[in-house]
Design a protein around this nucleic acid. Sequence first.
DNA 1: TACAAAGTATATAGATTTAGTAGACTTTTA
DNA 2: TAAAAGTCTACTAAATCTATATACTTTGTA
Lengths: 147, 147
Amino acid sequence: MLSKKTRYAIKALVVLGKIFGEAPMQISKIASEEHIPKKFLEQILLDLRNAGLLYSKKGAGGGYGLVKDPAEIFVVQVLRLTGGPVALLPCVSLNFYQKCDECSNEATCGVRDVFLEVRNATLKILSETSIADVIRREGLLIQNTEV
Amino acid sequence: MLSKKTRYAIKALVVLGKIFGEAPMQISKIASEEHIPKKFLEQILLDLRNAGLLYSKKGAGGGYGLVKDPAEIFVVQVLRLTGGPVALLPCVSLNFYQKCDECSNEATCGVRDVFLEVRNATLKILSETSIADVIRREGLLIQNTEV
DNA sequence: TACAAAGTATATAGATTTAGTAGACTTTTA
DNA sequence: TAAAAGTCTACTAAATCTATATACTTTGTA
């Protein structure tokens, strides 16, 4: 499962993606729109800013905005920045690799092999899906929901 | 990430799959072969037994064995029995569904849509892969490792 | 029949992680 | 100069996970 941190981060980027090019949006506005605890969101946005995904502006009229086009920010990046590993086993994780301490031979582990396949499938989707895609899908879903 | 419980469960089933049809194997043997804390493994095997995957035999010469052919036990079942959800978001989980409390409209949530796709891809692999497949893969990996 | 082997059951402890809160500080704009 | 808004660090509460402890039951065999 993704952590709340990761979920909130994606949600925030989607909101900011929708106003890309316009004036920055305040934390409190994002927080209230998306029902995210404000203080928690502060930390998350700060991380995303330090990672170079967002810019911030202090003072009255300040807020956060995307540095890059939402079409160039991929969901997989957000997972990694917020500490959510893509892999289901530490031994098949590219960015959070750790030896399974119970495993005697990683190279010949059948379990590992299966979860490597799972990771690759997941990675393919998440590294091909941008924030812009998420927004686009939302639009399609809304269309299909209207009668 | 999968919990240790889930990982240990899969490992144990693989070991038992290899001796399917033979006499049952003792917890302590499985534990030492797979480097799993014995008392922890006891609980896990008990769960798998109560779920109908394993039979047990008490007393001298006792132990655990698979009830069904390893080709009929799928990895996805093990995840579910041991509490490891397949989905990365609670709102796309079939067996551990929960509303995302920050989400205002599930039906039109683009994030959900993406992770639904991820879940489907993962589910496909894990529900098509049996314990027998895991054992088979291990064999192939060993072949490829030998020079 | 007694004893040892092996599973059963429940409780609990310790560690780790996650989620969220608090508070004081800095920068910017009107 | 006051209010708006982000920055930074620390802390706490709760949940979960991992593992251990203890006492008990069943079964095979010497």
